[in-house]
């Protein structure tokens, strides 16, 4: 499923990387501990977190995540947006908490088409 479809289905606010929403999401990972995400997420995943600082971009880029979703209306810092745009990683914001947005994305990704 393309990121674009998730953005539309869940009403996510796209903060940067609008030109890179056509990537395929193969799964997702939810976490705020960067080493946990480093060790356990996979390429092609969408990462759900409440961390907003620029180091999330390095993690997402190294792990080849297709995008980052910030929860609870958390706003990315300016340098995070700048780096993410340069690394072609879309950052989206949801007003939902991690549990709810993760559940909704899980359902979208596992729904029988």
């Amino acid at each position: 499923m393309k990121i674009e479809k998730i953005v539309q289905a869940l009403g996510l606010e796209v903060k940067c990387g609008k030109n890179y929403l056509d990537k395929d999401v193969t799964g997702g990972y939810t976490g705020d501990l960067l080493s946990d995400v480093m060790g356990n997420s996979r390429e092609g995943y969408i990462w759900i977190t409440r961390q907003v600082h620029q180091n999330i971009v390095a993690v997402a880029s190294l792990k080849e995540h297709v995008g980052i979703i910030l929860i609870n209306s958390c706003q990315p810092t300016a340098d995070t947006l700048e780096k993410a745009e340069a690394e072609k990683i879309p950052i989206m914001v949801s007003d939902l908490p991690a549990f709810e947005i993760s559940g909704k994305i899980y359902n979208l990704l596992t729904a029988k088409s």
Binding site: L34, D36, M38, G39, Q51, N55
Partner: peptide, 14 residues
């Protein structure tokens, strides 16, 4: 910042 979880060296080893 989400660092310092005590997982870094474990990830390196793994």
């Amino acid at each position: 910042m989400g660092f310092g979880a005590g997982m870094g060296l474990c990830n390196i080893k793994n």
